[in-house]
Amino acid sequence: PSSPQPPSSQAGQPPASPGQLSGQGHVIINPSLGDIPDRLMLKRHVPAAVDRAIGEIITPVVERSVTIACYTTYELVLKDFAGDPDESRLRKAAHLMVSSLAGSLSLVTAKDPLRISLTNQLRQMLQPQVSDAAMLDNIVSVLVNDNLDLGCTLIERAATDKAVRDIDKSLQAAYDERIKARQAGKPWVDPAAYHGAGSRFPGSLPEGLRPRPGGIQAHHLRVYEDFTRIPRTAPAVPPPGTPGAPPGAPDGAAAAAALLDR
């Protein structure tokens, strides 16, 4: 019953069309630009540029991020919740994880291309009206800095929405099996999780690490809730009291080097 099925991301709808996304009200027009916004009709141009820039990149970014996030989430939640009869906990954990992973992947993938695309769009729109090249550069750069995050947020939201829809489709069978077991008055158990095919694991793990029916507790669930606490932007200043790194290569880097010795 829990044989892995590829998440059905290709069956999902395409991301919401960019036209619905930006909305006039959300763009930022920096007051430092003085009377330029009025002269250049920026209130009309900037939302259009944001929409077009998003439109240029959103489809592949969302597809890829959602597909990867769904594969990962599917495997990990089915493993972690193999002993949990409560489908609502499985669903909640899956949603928390898949939104975070799809959102993070889409942001890290989209940020640089979106900056380039938005710069090009604004430049094309404003070039005919601004003859001074340095001034054009300056206006475009202010607008890009102020509105890049809006574009990123819209792409991220498209990715998280689609990821939640897609993971529910992939996990539907797992939800149903739990409901069915409960209705039949049977204890829930996912046999695949206890007897890895031809593997010593998880059977030979120490008691405390082996998956157990009904063994999930509140402090376990917190690791999934922590997915909502991952910062989506870099801190403006490094956190106070950040300890200095020990000198030399981190231990992890030594692991890579060790590969080459045989």
């Binding site: 990990l76 793990l205 870099a234």
Partner: peptide
């Protein structure tokens, strides 16, 4: 196998990874 089968350990390692994404561009990894 300890890491893989233990509840949430791999999820925690993934959190460590995606938490670094915002520091990649512009580069601000300490």
């Amino acid at each position: 196998p300890y890491l893989w089968h233990s509840f949430g350990a791999i999820a925690a390692l993934l959190q460590e990874i995606v938490a670094i994404y915002p520091l990649l561009s512009p580069p601000s990894l300490t």
